[in-house]
Amino acid sequence: MTHYAMVIDLNTCVGCNACMAACAMENQTPVWDKNKWRTYVHDKEIGVGSDVQRRFFPRLCNHCDNPPCMTVCPTGATQKKANGIVFVDQDLCMGCGACAMACPYHARIPVTRRDMRTGREFYGSDYRRTSPSMDKCSFCDHLVEQGRKPACVETCVGSSRMFGDLDDPNDPVAQMVASGAARALMPHIGTRPNVYYIDDIRWRG
């Protein structure tokens, strides 16, 4: 059985935001609102005085094995595939926002009818969305089904984002997770996320 996961190496993320752009164009997200990107790279200055480091922290849906956004979804619009990808059935979603309230990773975003109108102008006749919904990252499942990787991974210049199968012991992603080098965010909440981070040694040192 395939169990998709992503590892993000914070040491090699240069904050170019190409992942954000690739995701937005691939999934036609509302780029005109900075709060509505499926993936976002936070830029933070850490330290005091002359000893300041910039840390780029990409975030996205963690495709949890125990996704609270799915358990609170009253219509069943948020679903999980056998391969671990959590996705939204746009036609079922009524947009109550319970998923956004439940998500500890700030990964659910409202796409409104106004966004759809802007989207039709911005993306032109190729615009695919047919109804408003609480949107989220889908690990680009339409690309994954074709044997490709999510758009953010394919475009990452520093190879910071890596995508793989946790159930394949030969997959580098599985090995990084098994070794403990890549770790999940906030595991104490019990969501069992499938996005793992390699700490930036530079800052720790």
Partner: peptide, 11 residues
Amino acid sequence: HLLDKTAVLTI
């Protein structure tokens, strides 16, 4: 405040 009011029929 629902984004898609017609989908409320589901619940």
